[in-house]
Amino acid sequence: MADKGTEVHEELDYHKYKKKEEMKRQVITFALMIVFTIIAFGMVVSGLDKLFIIPIILVLAAVQVGFQLYYFMHMSHKGHEMPALMLYGGVFIAFLTVLTMLVLIWW
């Protein structure tokens, strides 16, 4: 029993350490997201060409969302295979829907 107690304790410490490490990464992610946001807003304010800005801010948004999903929502962890499958399923339909509304509404 005592043996098991220390084992549990060590395991706890290990997990605590790992969580702390992860939390550090989360903060870095957050800083990057803030930077991306500022870049996006800055580019729009700068008055560069539209065709240049739009793809870049869309990519920045996509990367930010990736950070949210994989770091903040822990999709990079084990046990997220089905969530990822269904989320990407949704993203696929979402892509088709938005594309349709952009090009197929017959003006």
């Binding site: 349709t100 509304m101 509404i105």
Partner: peptide, 12 residues
């Protein structure tokens, strides 16, 4: 507005 939007949403 655009009524084709309904058709798309309905059939999607």
């Amino acid at each position: 507005g655009n009524s084709v939007i309904w058709e798309h949403l309905f059939w999607i």
